[in-house]
């Protein structure tokens, strides 16, 4: 565990040195503040807490931005160090390979968690203080921030899997972008196409629920947008929420699974890899 934490600490310090932490925190904070104040404008007339509506807009932002940041942070982690030659030296130390992967994961996750919590938190705090509105939506807001970190964790884990699979940094970067496109865009479009073509004959509600769990971005979306009555109404997903969606536990489990399985696969592959 000691070695894992040492590597995590180094990764975190690297993130601060090369401005990843500052850049992502600022980026998320600026987007979040913009969305919070622009998006909260109509709340006066529909009597919804501005924080609740911010959950809707911010989670839509998260689906695009957080996996992208996480994949960019992660795709280089293994293949880059092997390429530069620092990995050979690191592995000549009394460090197991799983400790290298896990240490890097914890470090990158800490960077991502810091950026998300501080960036979104700043927006949430500013909104509550400036609009003098109720804070009853803080729970879904906190849930949104937490699940954003979880989505980030899943993306980091997938980035590592890519990073251990390929021999070349450029290839890893390309695949990372491809995976990002697949999960945030292509998967949903394909699913929509299937639904339209199928006309509900074989793909019923249960199958669809299952299919949504196979995409971490969809699991995240359902978790936040259909989570509470207030928010699902506002996000236009009240219909879906009223139906039998997979349930919070299943959605959370899907996100955790999307983190743990790629991470285990990355460790297994890295163990076999010759550096």
């Amino acid at each position: 565990m000691r070695a894992t934490l040492i590597i995590a600490g180094k990764e975190l310090r690297d993130g601060m040195r090369n401005r990843w932490v500052v850049a992502t925190t600022l980026l998320l904070a600026i987007f979040a503040l913009t969305l919070a104040f622009l998006g909260a404008a109509p709340t006066g007339s529909v009597k919804v807490a501005p924080l609740a509506i911010t959950v809707v807009s911010l989670s839509s932002l998260t689906i695009f931005l957080v996996p992208l940041i996480a994949l960019l942070l992660a795709y280089d982690a293994i293949v880059g160090e092997v390429d530069r030659g620092t990995m050979a030296l690191l592995l000549a130390y009394p460090v197991a390979r799983w400790q290298v992967v896990l240490g890097k994961f914890l470090g990158h996750l800490a960077i991502l968690a810091f950026a998300t919590v501080v960036g979104y938190g700043a927006a949430g705090l500013a909104l509550v203080l400036s609009t003098d509105s109720g804070t009853e939506a803080w729970r879904p807001f906190a849930g949104m921030v937490g699940s954003s970190v979880l989505l980030g964790a899943a993306s980091v884990a997938m980035g590592y899997l890519i990073s251990t699979l390929v021999r070349d940094r450029g290839t890893a970067g390309g695949i990372a972008i491809g995976v990002w496109l697949l999960f945030v865009l292509v998967y949903d479009m394909a699913l929509l196409g299937v639904l339209v073509a199928d006309q509900g004959r074989t793909v019923n509600g249960a199958v669809l629920n299952g299919l949504l769990l196979f995409n971490p971005a969809d699991a995240y979306r359902l978790l936040n947008l259909a989570g509470t009555a207030d928010i699902s109404m506002f996000s236009g997903m009240s219909g879906l929420a009223a139906q039998d969606h997979p349930g919070q536990a299943a959605l959370l489990a899907a996100l955790v699974g999307w983190t743990v399985l790629p991470l285990l696969a990355a460790i297994t592959l890295f163990n076999r890899r010759q550096v």
Binding site: K10, D14, R17, G85, T86, L89, A92
Partner: peptide, 12 residues
């Protein structure tokens, strides 16, 4: 161990 063309982390 000292690798050939030792690579170290430039930002440290």
């Amino acid at each position: 161990y000292l690798p050939e063309n030792v690579a170290l982390h430039p930002s440290m």
